[in-house]
Design a protein around this nucleic acid. Sequence first.
DNA 1: CATTTCTTCGTACTCAGTACAGTTTTTCGT
DNA 2: ACGAAAAACTGTACTGAGTACGAAGAAATG
Lengths: 218, 218
Amino acid sequence: MLMDGAMPEPSDRRSRKRLATRRAISLAADRLFRERGFDHVTVDEIAEAADVGRMTVFNHFARKEDMFFDRDEEGREILQETLRRRDPGVSPIETLRRLGHRLVAEQAPFVQFSDGSLDFVRTVEGSETLKARARAIRDEIAQVVTAALSESVGRDPGDPDARLAAGLLLATWTSAFILAHQTFRLRRDAEEAKAVLLAIVDKGSVGLKAAMAGTPYA
Amino acid sequence: MLMDGAMPEPSDRRSRKRLATRRAISLAADRLFRERGFDHVTVDEIAEAADVGRMTVFNHFARKEDMFFDRDEEGREILQETLRRRDPGVSPIETLRRLGHRLVAEQAPFVQFSDGSLDFVRTVEGSETLKARARAIRDEIAQVVTAALSESVGRDPGDPDARLAAGLLLATWTSAFILAHQTFRLRRDAEEAKAVLLAIVDKGSVGLKAAMAGTPYA
DNA sequence: CATTTCTTCGTACTCAGTACAGTTTTTCGT
DNA sequence: ACGAAAAACTGTACTGAGTACGAAGAAATG
């Protein structure tokens, strides 16, 4: 399973220090965001808490939101790699459905249900800015999936069918994620939440296959 | 067809003046946005061009983006009303598919293809802020559709199936809109663009019905 | 016409993000 | 080991959206 987990510590001192600074900022920011809510923390306070200058914060994170969402790249890579290494005997859509099941089985960070994940969701829900960024990331991932899908069947990037399929896929996964977390918040049962998530992924997959009938994606 | 077109001019002078001010701001803003791009126009300049104070601008429009997207309410209402007045013999999803066809046939403002609509799309594409707002509106509409769908079949608002269906529907319409405009930009043929739009709406509808098989939405 | 309500708009503020420039630290070639 | 180049850190000063507060003017209401 890709997602190389623990990036090898870089050897040169400069990169190590840079990474340490970045982590200090990220850590301070996360703590403050969870304590007081994203919108009630200023960048100055984060800089202060991380004991760096304000400009250093913006040197590491172009936007304030990036201090919160700092692992979205992994999601893109998993989707890309999965489609790239797909078994040609299994359709792209079915490949992605199975990916969903595999991620849940492997307790991947994206589909975990715990106190921490509730905090995460609560923090996002509490801020328009974070919700906006989440939507932007969703659209960026849809772009990546569009490209990966069309590549996986040898059509031009941006193929209309691939775009529609990617949009439907992301809509499905978003609903699945939200409803599973809602279930977990109410029932406090991670197994039940996972079941809800997979049920929706499967339902969406049925729809996706029907919409893509007659194309190589289904 | 609802969408009352030309709001009856209000009778009292106060409301008339207020509306005139609002229109002056909206007009000035639209012109400037199209000329120089959303991000290269400041609120001060809009106030200046509309010959009002800066605070008056924010009195009429809570956010700068609202001066650009000032007709999104209509979209929500059309969807709500359509589902509310639906023929009980036709499923909600089929009702919405037919709505798409009807809007295109009636040249509704949302699905028109013209030089103006290209400008509109170009202006949105040119600004992260506007794209963010467009995504937010899409999600708000998905909420409205979720509520309207569940109401239309007598389930609780926020029914999981309705949420998934609404997500898939908005994904479909978004793809349809984008791809139709792309077609129009390249081919300059409004009829062809409409055909593309309806083809995608129909394809999505097939998927939606399959995903919702066994529920009252299909 | 007096009172109340609504609209307009100024002043002063907060905060994210940018431009530019100066200092320190690390690296690397010699 | 030394000096130059590269990169990281940081301060100052700015832009621009959006908010808090409140005053002045216009219109509705009895």
